[in-house]
Design a protein around this nucleic acid. Structure first.
Length: 263
DNA sequence: AAGGCTGCCAACCGCTCTCAA
DNA sequence: CTTGAGAGCGGTTGGCAGCCT
């Protein structure tokens, strides 16, 4: 038995939102703010449930949404965060401004997952899959102090953490930039034609990489420093007076009435 | 041209979490 | 402490568009 539905669904609209509905919801929230989603549709004059309104606002109407495709940097960050947080999309989304959990989840399921599989990495664990045949037997991967959640990471602040040691002999797994990038995002590192013991240590906001061949010397230096930066978005930060993203069809709303839809 | 297939993504569903009474 | 309502989250679905045969 789940909990009761958030609303009486009889007579309520479902499916895609019309421009008129978007207009009403947008107008209502911009004029009145959000206090209780349950009453929003009633006050805004919408035949939708509060839950549906909330979703529409968060995933589509919110003025601070970035829209457009994900940049390579954003993809890298998603993979990095996913390796730590797993499928906690809202947590992952909180590290991005202008991106929703739904958007990130969709991108993960449709693009990044495939990319990882293509590269022989398990999307769930971010580690090489067993059926990858070019992985040398001599390779050992150890994760002495892996933090699986942000909370854990915070709790172990000041201690060496997220430390991966990979020992390998003469492997050539990494042969192009994409794979190198992915390895970086898994905080794993493979050596090419050398014996190395790369050691990633994260201490506070600083990352140090020791004993790395020059090939890898330019990666992960600053990647982790942004981890701890928390994105916090507020209405004041939405910049409602400067919405210039051409991908957002705000011109549909340029003729908003001055008065809210109070019925 | 038409039908099938695939990818994308908005939206929904069911569950958990949070917090006030 | 318990309960219940609302909010939030993650998994899933369905429809559309574009591509392929």
């Amino acid at each position: 038995m789940g909990r009761k539905p958030c609303c009486d669904k009889i007579g309520l609209r479902r499916g895609p939102w019309s421009i008129e509905e978007d207009h009403r919801l947008m107008n209502f929230i911009l004029h009145n703010g959000i206090h209780c989603w349950r009453i929003v549709p009633k006050l805004a004059g919408l035949l939708r449930c509060g839950k549906s309104c909330r979703l529409r606002w968060i995933n589509y109407l919110r003025p601070d949404l970035k829209r457009g495709g994900f940049t390579d940097a954003e993809e890298d960050r998603i993979m990095e965060l996913h390796s730590q947080l797993g499928n906690r999309w809202s947590k992952i989304a909180s590290h991005f401004s202008g991106r929703t959990d739904n958007e990130i989840k969709n991108h993960w399921n449709t693009k990044i997952k495939k990319k990882m599989k293509h590269l022989g990495l398990n999307p769930a664990t971010h580690e090489p899959m067993n059926n990858i045949t070019n992985q040398p037997q001599s390779m050992q991967i150890t994760k002495p102090n892996m933090c699986s959640t942000i909370k854990e990471r915070e709790e172990t602040k000041g201690q060496p953490k997220d430390e991966f040691i990979i020992e390998t002999k003469k492997t050539s797994i990494i042969s192009n930039n994409d794979e190198l990038l992915l390895a970086k995002n898994c905080k794993t590192l493979y050596a090419e034609e050398v014996d190395i013991r790369p050691l990633f240590k994260m201490q506070g906001n600083e990352t140090s990489v020791s004993s790395l061949p020059s090939l890898y010397s330019n990666i992960s230096r600053s990647e982790y420093s942004s981890y701890l930066a928390e994105d916090s978005i507020s209405l004041e930060q939405w910049g409602l007076t400067d919405m210039t993203d051409p991908l957002v069809p705000w011109d549909l709303f340029t003729n908003l009435d001055d008065t809210p839809f109070l019925l």
